[in-house]
Every structure is written in C-alpha cells, then in structure tokens.
Design a protein around this nucleic acid. Sequence first.
DNA 1: CACCCTAACTTGTCATTGACAAGATAGCAC
DNA 2: GTGCTATCTTGTCAATGACAAGTTAGGGTG
Lengths: 182, 182
Amino acid sequence: MTSSRSYHHGDLRRTLLAAAVEAIAESGPAALSLRDLARRAGVSHAAPAHHFGDKAGLLTALAVQGFDGLGEALRAAGDDFRESGVAYVVFAVRHRAHFEVMFRPDLYRADDPELVAARERTGELLRGGVSRHTGREPDADALAAWSIAHGFAELWLAGALPSRVGADPEPAARAVVGRLFS
Amino acid sequence: MTSSRSYHHGDLRRTLLAAAVEAIAESGPAALSLRDLARRAGVSHAAPAHHFGDKAGLLTALAVQGFDGLGEALRAAGDDFRESGVAYVVFAVRHRAHFEVMFRPDLYRADDPELVAARERTGELLRGGVSRHTGREPDADALAAWSIAHGFAELWLAGALPSRVGADPEPAARAVVGRLFS
DNA sequence: CACCCTAACTTGTCATTGACAAGATAGCAC
DNA sequence: GTGCTATCTTGTCAATGACAAGTTAGGGTG
C-alpha cells in the first residue's frame, strides 16, 4: 500500500529497500543517503532509522536480500557448474545494487546473524555446484569456478571490460566460464 | 620533508596520498574523509582541496598510482600468464587500498585523461600476457584469465573466502589460477 | 465499545563532512 | 628588494547520520 496520506506508511521497510536499490543503481552505494531514501518514500528524515537503526543496518538488510536472491538464481540454474557461473554473472548484472553491497562488508554488519545465515546458505550452494575433493585442501576447483564468475561480474559492473564484449552478459559469461577445466 | 613547523608543508600531495592509503586500509574507501587526512598530515581541513580539487580528485590520483603499480607488478612477474595471475592477486592484497579504489569508478573521475592512460597501459599488459600463451585470439582467453585473478582477489579482500584457504594469498592464488586452460 | 499500549512515524537538534570563498605566507624569478 | 604565484589557512554553508523526545494510529484486552 503506497497510500501517501496516512501517518503510518504501512509498508515502509520494503519501500525503503526498493528505493535504496534504485538509488544505488543510479549512483553507487557510496552516494547512498538515508535522507534521500526518506524523501523518495515521502516520509520524514528519521523514519529509516526506526526500521534499520542506521545506514549499516539498511545495507545489511539489502545484503541479506541479495544473498537470498543469488541463492534462488543458482538453484534455478541447475547442477551444471557452467550454468551456475552464468547465472551468477547474470544475477550480478540484473541485481547490480544488491551485488555491489553484498561483497563490501565494510558497508554493513557482516556479523549480523541473519546475514551470516543467508551468506552461509548461498555459499553452500556455490560449493555444491562443483565436484568436491573431499578431505584434501580447500576445494580449489570450487574456488576457481567462484573466482572466474565473480571476477567477470565485478569487471563487468566496474565498466572495466572492453566494449567489444557486448551489452549482453550471458553469452560473454558463457564464453569465459567455459575456459575453466577445458 | 615532513617538517611540521613551516607554513608550507613541502610534500603535502604525497603525504596525503600516503595517509589515504593508510586510512582506507583501516576502514575502507567508504569511510574516507578529507578532513581526517588533513588531520593526519597536520594541515588545515581545506589543504587537500588545493591539491586534488575534491574527494574524487584524490581518489583519481590514488587510482592512477594503483594502475601504475599493478603494471609494474605484472611486468616483474614475467611472461607466464599464471605468474601474472598470481602477481595480480598478490598486488591486490598487498596494496589493498589502491586496489579497492581502482575498480570502483563511481568513487573517482573515470574519464580523467591521466587515469585513462594509466588504465590503458596496464590493460595492454594484461591482454598481452595471455595471448602469448595460448596463441589464440586474446579475447575470451584474456578475459577468463583476468576474471579468475580478479575474482579471487576481490573475494579475498571481501573476506568471503573460507578460512581454510589460509593467510598467504600466493599459494592459494597459484592453485586457483592453475585451473585455467588445464 | 472504551481503554491503553506499543509500534510506527515526526520534529528538533548536534557534530561531522565536503565544498567553496577569501585571505595569509613563503619561496622564487628578476 | 620587489612582485608573482603556488601553497596553505580561516571562515562559512548546506547536507548528512545519529540521537532524543514527542505524536499518532491501530490492535488487543477488558
């Protein structure tokens, strides 16, 4: 309910998170301002603090949403680790704001229990997508797969990739991830 | 000279950049404050603006330093693309502050001519190392190599990797990068 | 239906920050 | 020595995050 007349907004928490996604997509997480979010939602400047405590609290909630969403995307991609890698990249590009927050723990409360749980759930999915070398060192195969997908996504979001890579992340990601173990 | 009595600092630009590296290493680029840097350098709160214009200007200078430093590290690593990948990761970890700024173009002026030049120089090095190894068109191979090194570095810096990976990035990076084209 | 009790939101305030303007100082060319 | 100019200072303003204290609404209880 976005009814704008009532004293009680009714769905402010969700509204603020959506506004944050929009604002971050426009100007990056560094430029995010709680007061700007309040203005976008049509509430007073101190309203966000009630729901999230402070800025880090809001970004923590965003990161939780992000890890959950990434987990869903990975589950939908199936078992093949190549498809998982592509899905990882596609998620990062389509949910840029979430992704840009998720891996910047200096922006939020990385030890928040809810966040730790969400991150752990999704981390399990990531590792499961690649065959494991049990017992031995940390699974370098899984790390390599995660790294190549994560790196391509970060480079894409940073605008560091040459323009000839194109505008659609999916085929580009498929080509890059395919280089692994081949 | 860091003589603290004279009106003219003498080497303020370099001093401020060093202070910025220190501050970012402590609390991340988001928490960086020009006034804090001025305090660390023992000058007035407006002194940084003279040398860098604004915060983005300072971070642009930091990014230029970073791309130059990365280029040097890559050159020192030699021709083997695997060693280049390891050097990339080691640079990111040892020069965390520079690296964390370099790939966040929303923090600085990405179209600054000096920065564009430095980024282009280093980008050339990155692509060259891989095409020499595979003989193929550099596109996807180079992207894959860059992605895997970059991704591992980012995950390391974000603290996202499981603790069993260890504390020394070099052997871990070697294991991961070795998964490429094999 | 009346009460109240608590979550949701507001207004008000303060220290900090980035940015800008205007002034002071010192090193350097001549 | 004189003036020029880069360097640095002081002063100020709007915006922000955080906190304190007050206001409103809406649901449970009697």
